[in-house]
């Protein structure tokens, strides 16, 4: 059973020996995670929904999650895994649309050239796309990406290398296609 402070949520020990609350983690990580999920899902609404669900899952298991060396890594893993399923994305988006009906404004849309980059990223094999967003959007070093994805540093490097090759080709084709139109 989670014993949560109503104002700040449950607490955890961080690597500095100080304590931080669930809410601190949320404030620190939520925005980055939404960006991650957005890059992978292509849907802002779905991204927000997925991040909410990830934090809710963390909250409900806080005694366990807070004991991890890096609870944020657990959240990243949940979010990147949840973001790449087409069906889950659709359902998350449908839920989010209902929830967001009461919100007065929706976030802005990405410029077309940036949107094209993320479309190309989403077209990559699943693991490659996850590595790309973790590396570029979340600025994670190779070792931390490996930790999030549960694989070796070498595997991450391989995925990143191949992703770059595919992206270079895809974006070049896109540029040529755009120029011809």
């Amino acid at each position: 059973m989670i014993e949560a402070d109503e104002q700040t949520g449950p607490e955890l020990g961080d690597e500095t020996g100080e304590t931080a609350s669930f809410d601190d983690l949320y404030r620190r990580e939520a925005r980055r995670l939404v960006a991650l999920a957005y890059g992978l899902s292509g849907s802002r609404r779905a991204a927000e929904e997925l991040v909410q669900e990830a934090f809710l899952a963390a909250y409900r298991r806080w005694n366990q999650i807070s004991a991890y060396d890096d609870p944020a890594a657990w959240l990243r893993r949940v979010v990147v895994n949840q973001s790449v399923s087409r069906i889950r994305r659709r359902v998350a988006e449908a839920r989010a649309m209902t929830r967001l009906r009461a919100r007065p404004t929706l976030p802005a849309v990405l410029p077309e050239q940036d949107e094209a980059v993320w479309r190309a990223v989403r077209a990559l094999p699943r693991r490659q796309a996850q590595v790309v967003v973790l590396h570029y959007v979340d600025d994670l070093p190779i070792a931390e990406i490996a930790q999030v994805l549960g694989c070796s540093d070498g595997t991450v490097k391989t995925h990143l290398h191949r992703a770059r090759q595919l992206l270079a080709s895809a974006l070049e084709n896109h540029a040529h296609g755009g120029a011809e139109q």
Binding site: G9, Y38, R44, E48, V51, E53, F55, Y59, P107
Partner: peptide, 13 residues
């Protein structure tokens, strides 16, 4: 593009 409060308030069960 992700506003600081874009993820909404911290979720609570």
């Amino acid at each position: 593009s992700v506003a600081p409060n874009s993820a909404g308030p911290p979720p609570r069960p």
